[in-house]
Design a protein around this nucleic acid. Structure first.
Length: 273
DNA sequence: ACTCGTGTTAGCTG
DNA sequence: TCAGCTAACACGAG
């Protein structure tokens, strides 16, 4: 399920294969995926335009759109979010497919047609589909990108210190707060905290300056490794994130609990409070 | 039948 | 008003 690395593969698929193709029809019938828009609203806004860029910040993607034959002014921004299980399929004119997003398709690798929640149809016969079996993804016009914090791959040490300086939230909750830092999900948060040897339940106001900087480096390292290796599930401690799992460094037992409202695993020896 | 979940967010509370 | 927490959302997987 997509965190920053998986979303980047989806953005890359759109950038590689979906830009500058004329939109002739839009399937926006899924009123939950397209909330708060009404069915037909996104269709009317996009038909006759092309996507002109594919952008990402954290787990959010958006595409700028062109003017139409009748109005030269640029169209609305098309926001795309993969939610817990979204995947992007871009079908080229020659029927080849470029894809990205959630690597897990289904228990039997099935692609049920009803899991296509949103589709742009291009004049050349191809399409861009948001495939999402969980239906928690989201398509919206002019999404509120400004509410997102800095991207986890681009944040500076000074910015990271400042977002960890205020408040009393548990450090894992702060890492998951997309308005503070965009792109870290549940698995990457556990991986980064494990790399930094910090308890996920430690309050941010209890962190030493050296611990904050260590965590910043761990986040960057964990996200970069996940991008390079094909997803958040490739982290070093993720395979031990189950009952009976052991720390890959010291072999102590892994502990489980709820932190920041999410299922959380940490090393019982190295990540105590 | 029942629980869990790699995400987001409305609504409540202090 | 705001930071922080909880429940709810939809629905497949185990």
């Amino acid at each position: 399920m997509p965190e920053l690395p998986e979303v980047e593969t989806a953005r890359s698929a759109i950038a590689a294969a979906a830009l500058n193709r004329r939109i002739v029809d839009v399937d926006d019938h899924d009123s939950y995926e397209c909330r708060p828009h009404l069915p037909g609203e996104i269709r009317r806004a996009l038909v006759g335009r092309t996507l002109t860029s594919a952008n990402r910040r954290g787990k959010s993607m958006w595409c700028a759109t062109s003017g139409t034959d009748h109005a030269a002014a640029p169209g609305p921004i098309l926001g795309l979010h993969l939610g817990m299980a979204g995947r992007i399929f871009v079908v080229r004119a020659d029927s080849t497919i470029v894809e990205g997003g959630d690597p897990i398709v289904g228990s039997h690798g099935e692609l049920k047609p009803e899991w296509d929640r949103f589709t742009l149809f291009f004049a050349d016969g191809g399409s861009l589909r948001l495939f999402d079996k969980r239906r928690l993804g989201r398509v919206r016009l002019n999404p509120p990108i400004e509410r997102l914090g800095p991207d986890a791959l681009e944040i500076s040490a000074a910015q990271f210190r400042s977002l960890m300086r205020s408040g009393t939230a548990q450090v894992k909750a702060r890492l998951l707060d997309q308005t503070a830092l965009a792109g870290v999900g549940n698995l990457l948060a556990d991986e980064a905290l494990w790399q930094a040897r910090l308890s996920p339940a430690k309050r941010v106001d209890q962190l030493q300056p050296a611990e904050v900087d260590r965590l910043h480096r761990a986040v960057r390292r964990a996200v970069n490794a996940a991008v390079a290796n094909g997803g958040a599930h490739t982290g070093r401690m993720i395979s031990e994130r189950h009952p009976g799992g052991h720390c890959p460094r010291c072999h102590a037992e892994m502990r489980h609990g709820t932190v920041g409202g999410r299922s959380t695993w940490w090393c019982s020896a190295e990540q105590s409070l």
